[in-house]
Design a protein around this nucleic acid. Structure first.
Lengths: 206, 206
DNA sequence: AATAAATCAAGAAAAAAATCACGATTTAAT
DNA sequence: ATTAAATCGTGATTTTTTTCTTGATTTATT
């Protein structure tokens, strides 16, 4: 369905999207590729190449329609296809993600959180309930959830992942610094907080 | 100093690093490129190419020394160069990052948090104090901190960023979904949580 | 000792991504 | 009206990244 947008492009698309939101709030209707490029420190033909993937024609000397661009970025990145997910691990990171309202506008719908700490059970976070982890398999079945956001401590990561896989979770968004062992039917996305930042921070710091 | 490691490579290096940590914990001394490659679903010559950047020779039929690899990854990614940082915005995400102990092992040292909510001031989080944002310029000067981790709400992002820049912050790790406007002397790293994940999640979900 | 299998190393080839360059178009200015 | 400037669209070029291939090396096996 989606034309297999490369990761780098989809990264840029979300950045373009933020700029579109900003322009709309400022009441500006059109935007040009050099404007965007300068803002992001990239080449303007790069921006145009990316926009061509969106099938969104610009107009010479004028630029692109902000509203149209925003819509087609959302369509291409699937913001409108709602994707349900569970957060597994209700520590600070789990709670932060549960409160992160932007997920919703990106089409990611957090249904509930899980933890094994009895003290946390039944607490409500941003209108989402924290359940004991033992309730997960049942809820996965009943709600047909395929995505789990894994925010448990490092030590528990593989064990919990195994449990998720048994429970029929198909996609794991992994916030732990552990390279999970999973069967080929399960897809893992490693959110590698440090990886790219280190590169950024070390490039010129000393 | 560092040989300008591309972003993709440094991303893989952190993944390799996690695997090394795991092997050390398991008491395994050596690891081969096919083992790593299979684990990550990538090509084994890719792994070897990456390792060559580390100047870490392997041994035919045996593989690489886990300990040596770990050390040279840490050296290359600058884990040992301690980098001080402030967290600006003490909401859930800010607190989560303040508690994220892995930062320390990656050489990122969070010194303090900031917020403008009087209720949060002086609270201790993981041995770090939350200060009122007005104290930031002074502390930046006194402690010579150059890195700020920005976790404020979207609406406040640009305004707070401007304040950071005035205060002589040089690197902003931006967790807000706003493309910040900064002068060329200031570097921004956009932590684009959704960008790559969307790509991952939409590729085959419908 | 000879053979086989696993692995590294490194150059070649292929693929992917980014940049350049230029013609075409549109708007604003003279 | 004509000219100039800004911008798009796109093919060509360059650069970067990944994969393929082959030969060398080391260990285990016969």
């Amino acid at each position: 369905m989606s034309k297999n947008i490369p990761e780098k492009v989809s990264n840029r698309l979300t950045l373009y999207h933020s700029i579109m939101v900003e322009y709309i709030e400022a009441g500006i209707d059109t935007i040009s590729s050099p404007q965007i490029a300068q803002r992001l420190g990239i080449d303007d033909s790069q921006v145009r190449k990316d926009f061509k993937l969106l099938n969104n024609a610009g107009k010479c000397r004028v630029g692109y329609m902000v509203k149209d661009l925003k819509d087609s970025i959302e369509k291409t990145l699937g913001f409108s296809k709602t994707k349900d997910a569970f957060i597994v691990g209700s520590g600070h990171l789990g709670l932060a993600l549960a409160k992160y309202d932007s997920f919703n506008s990106y089409g990611l719908n957090i249904l509930a959180l899980f933890d094994n700490d009895p003290q946390k059970i039944d607490i409500q976070v941003n209108n989402k309930q924290i359940f004991h982890i033992s309730k997960l398999p049942n809820l996965v079945q009943r709600l047909g959830v395929e995505i789990a956001i894994l925010t448990v401590p490092r030590q528990a990561a593989q064990q919990v992942a195994d449990f998720l896989i048994e429970s029929d979770i198909k996609y794991i968004w992994n916030f732990t610094p552990v390279v999970l062992k999973v069967p080929p039917t399960v897809k893992v996305w490693n959110e590698n907080l440090m990886g790219s930042f280190l590169q950024f921070a070390c490039k010129d710091i000393e």
